[in-house]
Design a protein around this nucleic acid. Structure first.
Lengths: 209, 209
DNA sequence: CCGACATGTTGACAGTGTACACATCGATGC
DNA sequence: GCATCGATGTGTACACTGTCAACATGTCGG
């Protein structure tokens, strides 16, 4: 009976949770981890309650001690994916500090698209409508990041909220749509690069208008 | 035993198939019809082989006489949805004949977004990656439509294919991304209108660059 | 008229989410 | 130290899903 716990608990957690694992240690995090891996490899269809539970060496019903439904677990994995992507984007922004706002905005767009193409299946979760509100509203959020840069494009003194919203939406819509179309319909990497450059050039023009 | 056939066959087909209905009449079309309705009302999750079959008064296994798998049926429904949307767009374009290319391109974008917001669940199928090639490549296709208008933006004499591709991609990406974001995250119709106008204005600028 | 073929049904199997009753373990009060 | 209690995990069951093999039925060509 203890073998099951050992095989799964040994691979993860344990060290992070002070002493030896409690019933499981911290199953909630483990479930999200497993879900992330499953999403990476098998896509959204592969992310199922039973498979995630099995990957943690735990029965399916155990999931419901930590999430009110399977959809909530998926949503948590999606939130995790958004955090990963946000980290990517922030890291890339650090290397571009000092550049003009419009260039940094382009970096963000490129980063967003690059993530979608590097992790196409995980990206499906990123772009899922969020059924459950994120646990922490204060951590790195892609939308806020875009907003902050867009604000720099505003003429000093007065910020027109409508204009800000329009610019944000142009940036987000074009990056999001382009990422999806490239991922699903344009396999050739060279063509992808060409289209990314072509679109982002024009978006830049539109953003400054 | 004939009651089942009557209740379902009476509502559709029959007239189109010359005489009285054969085993079912034309089940293939009926399945796609039912799938379309199901997608409209219940969304992608509601579109299942068994429910479509039941809606046609037919056993689930019967589906496999007309489609190699359930995914192929879904794909056929998706193709149907694309045709419906394309018809919308063509109709709207007819009323805008004579206007400059850039204005007609905007009409197409507005039409695309309007469809996504009017039929949010059906739109999920539209934007599905096409696993199976469409039956007829020659009928109204949204991408070709956009391409034809974009070609009018090219300077007469020479067409730069890279520039054409970039413009097409900007138009499609921004409309697609905006439609998705508005559908999933912006419930307020007034805000939607404002954002559509704001984005399309800027896309217009980018397209003419 | 009758066989061949297209089409539809039945029943089964594996896999899914989820709820209920039960088991087990850690901590906490006495 | 011991009992109890709450948190956590298990087992089992139900309704649902896609899909297949075996069988039934209805239509058309010879």
């Amino acid at each position: 009976m203890s073998d099951r716990r050992e095989t799964s608990a040994a691979s993860r957690g344990r060290a992070s949770a002070g002493r030896a694992a409690y019933h499981h240690g911290s199953l909630r995090e483990a479930l999200i981890d497993a879900g992330e891996q499953l999403a990476r490899s098998d896509g959204l269809d592969g992310v199922t309650v039973r498979r995630i539970a099995a990957a943690c060496g735990v029965s399916a019903a155990a999931v419901y001690r930590h999430f009110p439904s399977g959809d909530h677990l998926i949503a948590a994995v999606a939130q995790r994916a958004r955090e990963i992507m946000a980290r990517d984007m922030f890291a890339r922004l650090d290397t571009a500090a000092g550049k003009p706002a419009i260039d940094r905005l382009r970096e963000v767009g490129e980063s967003y698209i690059a993530f979608a193409l590097a992790e196409p299946r995980l990206f499906s979760l990123v772009s899922m409508p969020m059924t459950t509100p994120p646990d922490r509203l204060d951590d790195p959020n892609a939308a806020d990041l875009v907003r902050n840069i867009v604000l720099e494009l505003e003429p000093p003194g007065e910020v027109d909220e409508v204009r800000v919203a329009g610019r944000m939406m142009l940036a987000q819509s074009s990056a999001h749509g382009l990422a999806l179309i490239l991922r699903d319909f344009v396999p050739d990497p060279q063509v992808r690069e060409m289209l990314i450059a072509g679109v982002l050039d024009r978006v830049g023009v539109g953003l400054e208008a």
